[in-house]
Computed example of a mutant assay.
Amino acid sequence: MGGPLKQHRALSHYLKKTMLRSPLQLSNFRWLWFGQTFIFSASQFWFVALTWLVLQKTGSGITLGTVLMATAIPRGLLILLPDN
């Protein structure tokens, strides 16, 4: 007796404990968020360092454009691939 009601209460308790909390309170999500933030920041620093290095070494806007195009083309092509 009371099977469905008991299951409903258990589900409600589970949702309150896990799903309805702030995502940063969940350890796995917090690690994912920090990792993604770190990787994104590192890639932005790499982009700035690359452009600075090319301009320091060559001083040429054409060379800088070529290097930036060479980094953008693979990104553009890979973004078109389906996500499996």
Rank of each mutant, 00 (worst) to 15 (best):
S27H: 13
P23F: 08
T58S: 15
L11K: 11
L50E: 02
P23T: 03
I73E: 05
V48E: 06
T71S: 07
R75E: 03
W33N: 10
L24K: 15
M19H: 01
L68G: 05
K6G: 08
F34V: 11
G61L: 15
L80I: 03
F45V: 11
K17L: 14
M1K: 07
N28Q: 04
T66I: 15
L15H: 07
A10E: 13
G59M: 02
H8L: 13
L20N: 13
G76A: 04
A72T: 08
I79A: 08
F40W: 14
I79K: 04
A49Q: 13
K16W: 04
V48N: 02
P82I: 00
T63P: 03
P4M: 03
P23E: 01
Q36L: 09
W46P: 00
N28Y: 07
Q25K: 12
W31D: 12
W33F: 13
H8R: 04
F47A: 10
T51E: 12
L53F: 15
F34P: 02
K6N: 07
P4K: 09
T18M: 05
K57S: 01
L55I: 03
K6F: 08
Q56C: 08
L64N: 06
S60V: 03
G76T: 05
F29C: 09
H8C: 01
L15E: 13
V54L: 09
G35R: 11
W52N: 12
L20E: 11
T58K: 04
I73A: 05
K6R: 10
I79W: 10
